[in-house]
Design a protein around this nucleic acid. Sequence first.
DNA 1: AGGCTGGTTCGACGTGTGTCAACATAGGCT
DNA 2: AGCCTATGTTGACACACGTCGAACCAGCCT
Lengths: 124, 124
Amino acid sequence: MSNVQELPLLDPTGGQGVVPCCPPLTERPMSATEAETAARMFKALGDPVRLRLFSAVASHEGGEACVCDISDVGVSQPTVSHHLKKLKEAGLLTSERRGTWVYYRVEPSVLAAMGQLLAMPAAA
Amino acid sequence: MSNVQELPLLDPTGGQGVVPCCPPLTERPMSATEAETAARMFKALGDPVRLRLFSAVASHEGGEACVCDISDVGVSQPTVSHHLKKLKEAGLLTSERRGTWVYYRVEPSVLAAMGQLLAMPAAA
DNA sequence: AGGCTGGTTCGACGTGTGTCAACATAGGCT
DNA sequence: AGCCTATGTTGACACACGTCGAACCAGCCT
């Protein structure tokens, strides 16, 4: 347990962190630190435009999409870029330039972490 | 306050069964309407204080807690009340006054719906 | 009645956020 | 070189948001 990505917290400036994070919300009260971390991810998805962008990337083949394929969400191009940056900073997406186009890709572990966070306690 | 907001994430067809508003994020690109609905809930959980409050209620016995039990999150009491109201407006919590105290309770179906939203497609 | 405690609402303040137009950068093309 | 397309960055704007203190409502006391 000493390699892979095991950043304790997300670095806001790096924007490349993966956060395994916290126990389910229903298990015990979250600490301030845990809440800070988890809220950052929820916040990133708390905007309709970002949610659509993220969904567009996530549902694309291979979990990867070019900006040009997903930028039709009703806002200007700079705004799309701005939101993609936010999603990247939240650790939800990664980007890679290949020639002319930039491709965005989901960070599956983070998605899984959020899913776990909302996991129901199976009604005991 | 006669808040006429529609139920956020659930489609009340079929009674108690969990009917998510939207398919998993990874299934297909979300529509604008779907994103609007889902983002409202993510946004509600996108604040550390609200996340702690929600977690405190959700992890309490019976999924229910008195305000006095959970209001120790580092902000003033009016702010706690404000956030609880937000969570209520987002459909995540319901409140009920019993004598002196007000009890908040999680909306389990909504929690499940959000979990489904983040469900992974078994790593295609 | 009056007072006390638990919660909510109000009004205000500073900060954060989404948005755009304009500019800047990267890479491919002629 | 020069131009053109694809993205990202900057600066500015309006608006939303989190926070607090103070005032206000709801029940339980004495």
